[in-house]
Amino acid sequence: MVKRFYFLILVVAFLWAGSSHGADTAQTMNQTMLPGKSRSVAASSSVQENKVGTGDARTSAADRESPDEEAVDEEEEEGEEEEEGEVSISDPLESFNRAMFQFNDRLYFWVVKPVAQGYSKVVPESGRSSVKNFFSNLGFPKRFVSCLFQADFGSAATELGRFVVNTVWGVGGLLDPAANKELGLQKQDADIGQTLGIYGLGHGFYIVWPVFGPSSLRDTVDIAGEYFQSPFTYADPWYVGPSVRAYEGVNSASLRIGDYEALKEAAIDPYVALRNAYAQYRQNMVKKKEKRETPAPGGAKPSQRIFQ
């Protein structure tokens, strides 16, 4: 069974390598296929993670107590909130960013939301979920390559397995059978900005792009990366790419109508709220991967679920 599965991965890998995506990514992929261990690494690491996630959660979490966190707690005990653990991002372009925030806000309320609402009346949620899965499946090269650059071969193999299973048995990526209980291959959120972060590169500064939304100098690489890895970018005629991207945007917006409204409603200053949420979210994306790479003193393998 394992052999058969492995063979399938190889077949699809070669097919994929022959398709229109860049030759260099295909090469990297073949190189990792050669040692022939990536699959088993994924299996064993996911088993370990499960163990940690359930039984050993408390003991291993205690071992992993980071010193700065304890320092923060002590400060808090004395009633002096320590703000050093605070996640922040520099914002020299604040006036430009606030203007772009306004623009995106209007774009959402005047264009995206009405369209998404109309669309969600026609297409049921299950259909929209499938469309989301389809686009997510196409994002595989970016996640896979990012995992490789992070030397996270377990996650890379998981992604590869997901791509194969979902493309073959998931009707070209519309369904997500890889994530079910039997296979348990969950999507690995990995991107280029995160990878650069793991290599120690900071955000630079905060930047709000029109249409694309919150980003940073570093994470802007992802907007470009997304563009080049999408097969629709190379489609003919030229307007196929932008149209597909607009559709993808409307589809994903239709699945979370109300989220942005809730954020705005709850915020005292929505611009600062979104900026801070972005900084926290991205920092944790980097942090959780870093924790995975440096084992805790007790020798316990950090679970992916447990991060601060």
């Binding site: 909130e81 703000e83 605070e86 996640v87 922040s88 915020a267 005292i268 200053d269 600062v272 709220a273 900026r275 801070n276 949420a277 926290q280 979210y281 944790n284 994306m285 959780k288 991060f307």
Partner: peptide, 15 residues
Amino acid sequence: NVSLVQNYRAQFKDI
């Protein structure tokens, strides 16, 4: 991964 308290703290600090 976004702490509610930290998010508000950033806003109150700014204000």
